[in-house]
Design a protein around this nucleic acid. Structure first.
Lengths: 153, 153
DNA sequence: CAGTATCCCTCAAGATACTG
DNA sequence: CAGTATCTTGAGGGATACTG
């Protein structure tokens, strides 16, 4: 009676994603990883998170196949945390959150960090939702197909 | 000494977004709103969330300008919750989470709900991160530009 | 039906001390 | 430096009774 559905058994992919990475820290760790951070203490200082929490989150992200550990450089016997392909595929998620925040969570003129296309130096253009023909797709032009027990092509 | 930075004052848009909508329920409410849900009890039954929590989240989403209340149909004196333009602009966020979950959080062949382009009946194609010329942009081809106190063009 | 008001409890998270 | 272990706090969230 506690939780209706265990969330990670929910048929909606959004629900499962939120359950897995929808906490206060996981996506920020991933963001930092995209930004090239690899070491425990780098994440720790960047986020200001307690070390035990960071340790726990890193473990969960590794378990989820989002990060993987690899031996750090020669000198240090410690491991580095790097994004797996699965972790890299969170790029649109992080970018979408970034762009939404940029557009709606800052006062006009307020300073904020920005994601640039390194080659051109230009900001990364807004994500667009396109249909198969490359036409812009608005939310009301889409529909969720729900699957119940009975389901076939 | 408790929290390093109040999060909602963080210069990174990702951090602010996560802080605002990165909890267990907000994005699922928004997802349901995209799916056409408007009424308290619809959200409640869909999510299985406690009513006080739902009430609180709806209020916060309204405060954040993501939802707005409007008078429901003739008969009922109650209000409906509908997405504002700001709320609609969360479409890429929800879609990115959906597509990532679809690709990585289901066993092969396991049933999951799907977002369709209503016109064609085809699944909405994966979001792509493109540069200004429409070329695919990989994470390592981008760079966050950090802003400190000293910043100008 | 659409909430509000309470009560309670669990877990996320912080602080800190300790270890290899 | 890179964690682990332990303790404590507080917010998030559930259940339920109540109200217009």
């Amino acid at each position: 009676m506690s939780t209706r559905q265990p969330m990670n058994e929910q048929p909606c992919p959004v629900a499962r994603s939120v359950d897995l990475i929808g906490d206060r820290w996981s996506l920020l760790i991933v963001r930092d990883a995209f930004d090239g951070m690899r070491r425990f203490s780098d994440f720790q200082r960047s986020l200001g998170v307690a070390r035990n929490i960071l340790s726990d989150r890193l473990k969960k992200l590794v378990d989820a196949g989002i990060l993987q550990t690899e031996a750090a450089a020669e000198g240090s016997a410690y491991q580095a945390y790097v994004l797996t392909p699965r972790g890299e595929s969170l790029f649109p998620v992080v970018l979408a959150l970034r762009q939404w925040g940029e557009g709606h969570l800052f006062k006009p003129g307020e300073a904020h960090s920005l994601l640039l296309d390194q080659a051109s130096g230009q900001p990364v253009p807004p994500l667009r939702v396109l249909d198969a023909q490359g036409q812009e797709l608005r939310p009301d032009q889409t529909r969720v197909r729900k699957l119940d027990a009975a389901d076939d092509a």
